[in-house]
Design a protein around this nucleic acid. Structure first.
Lengths: 197, 197, 197, 197
DNA sequence: ACATAAGCGAGACGGTACGTCTCGTCTTCTG
DNA sequence: CAGAAGACGAGACGTACCGTCTCGCTTATGT
């Protein structure tokens, strides 16, 4: 979460330049993708963005926070949170983009980030708070709803079913196992009873 | 992997002091557990171990290598590969120790280690060959056997079921989700049809 | 005064590199002469000396201290204390070198040093004791002797006459007034009655 | 010299707030006395004066100019320039206030300023132009007049006599020599032949 | 009377330098 | 030779100012 909440608007003084926001995040993301977390330096980001260091520290209080925000925004990790009433469909539309990104050009950024995140406590903390939390919550909500309306059995393990897809997708990514087109389908077949045709 | 192979023994001059080896690894593990990877600094380890920096660099060529080695030794992972003919029991005796360790003092250590493994191609390959590979192969073998003898349906997704337990356990560890006593049981309930009593 | 006293010698570990000492002080003096105090930056000195910043901060705890030390060493003020029995001649041989230095390359350096001396109580006291003190004492002695032997009138203001030359020379230096060849002669003409030929 | 001349008066728009002028100068002076020139920062002055930075830069084009003005006004250095036809009396009424101030509470401000002035080229330049210049010019004028009317001998060293008093007074201040009540009289006795009673 | 022009507090901006910290290497002395 | 101590070149960290530049508001004057 950026340093200042959204009540910034009506503050006195010169307002923040949105062009700077963009330049900073883009520069951060570029460097992160090229060099990894360790390769990101505030001076480097500032130079690449054509921005003073203070302009960065005015927005993010540390390197960790900066990188989290950059990845969150830049890699569009703030996905849609669909709720159509069809569990399989909803899970598919939530998780399929992740698989696609892990196969595409964002793969390096995402994997690097997922890894670095575990390494650095700040990064972890920041990321859990800002992104993952909501997503996980929604997954749980979808599964619970499905159980409540009978799409799953009454004693279904909501928590575990909700985590199953991300767990296995990332597991495949980490170990270099193939991220086939039908992977998600196979996962869902495993943890959700197939719909009667 | 340590800098010097095992032919160190018969070198000329003063032999390496084993007490140093121990002190360095212990200090590294302690700091690592307390402060995380970023909190480990060579100067810090040297000070805590009462050792010169050169004494560390003589053994490990970088901070990353030092930490990995420390973890590998400190939290030795010598698993059994059981095959009793009871899928549930075998999976349990293979995975339960992992959960236990991820809940204990070794948790941080193991997690970071898992991460480093993903990061470093050499490390990855080496570990796949020596430890993880065998384990994964055995898991697959257990599941396939179970399917063959009818414990699972004939069209069971062997690959996926074999990966399910480690995937979800590590997932829980990575995100700080609770590693309850019954977690493994719940995972197995999810991916293996309960045996009819 | 440099950070570490002289008992450094017998310390453990790698000794300080004297070449660094020299390079740092020389670089500082050069930049100081070219750009003035404000133009001296630690990064600049480090770059010019081909030295890391830490190597400077290991020796001097701040920019001010660095510059003072550099000046003190670079423009050593080892004056003679003549006593020929000819007041005019003695004063001339004591003060003329100062004028010459204040006209030469050392000018900026000496001026800033004089300033720092006034600023810093410790420095002031130390210098009064070591160099300036002796010099002032000797000046007073010369004037008093001259008075006693009748070269000056019996009621001559010894103290004031002794201070006159340095006071006016430094005054000229501080205000950028010209330090002409005949300045000293004019000063002496003013405060010492010309000898009847 | 302040940025804007006196033709400000009849400008259009909102006139400058005199309360700001005062607040800025006072804040500057306070901080200068407490922390020295280096301790003065525009942000600090603005904060202490309860004023925006632009309000300062509208009046003074740099930190050096601001400090000069503040000291000049605050310490009332713009003395009278008397011309009664009695050299001794005129010099006394010009220099005695300086001695008094160097003994009083302004001492710290004045000394700090005199010292810092030498250190910082901007400051020096500014001060010479705005304050010292006129004073020195007047001193020279007084001495020259005295010579012309026969109060001094025809070959008197006008320049030097004019500088003598400030030179020796500041010299005493810098070296912590006593600023006695009769100091000025002794100086004048030294450089100006006593009037025949 | 009300537009114009400037002053004002606040604070963002691109820079530069600060003094601290860590990295991985190098150098000396002692056992 | 190993080991402790620690200096070294390099360079990132986060802070503090600089002097400039918007903002939205307030305050006189001039038409």
């Amino acid at each position: 979460m950026a340093i200042s909440e959204e009540d910034i608007r009506t503050r006195a003084g010169r307002p923040r330049d949105p062009a700077c926001d963009a330049a900073i995040l883009q520069a951060t993301l570029d460097i992160f993708a090229e060099e990894g977390y360790a390769g990101v330096s505030i001076d480097g980001v500032a130079a690449r963005a054509g921005v003073g260091k203070a302009t960065i520290y005015r927005r993010y209080s540390s390197k960790a926070e900066l990188v989290v925000e950059a990845v969150r925004c830049g890699a569009s990790v703030d996905d849609l949170l669909p709720d159509t009433g069809d569990l399989r469909a909803d899970l598919t539309s939530m998780m399929q983009p992740l698989i696609e990104r892990l196969r595409g050009e964002d793969a390096k950024v995402l994997t690097t980030f997922a890894v670095e995140r575990v390494r650095d406590a700040d990064l972890q903390e920041q990321f859990n708070r800002s992104v993952i939390g909501k997503k996980r919550e929604h997954l749980r909500h979808l599964v619970a709803s499905a159980r409540d309306r009978g799409e799953l059995s009454a004693d279904a393990d909501v928590e575990l079913i909700a985590e199953a897809a991300p767990a296995m997708i990332w597991h495949h990514a980490f170990y270099g196992l193939p991220l086939d087109d039908n992977l998600l389908e196979r996962i869902l077949d495993l943890v959700i009873p197939k719909r009667p045709q």
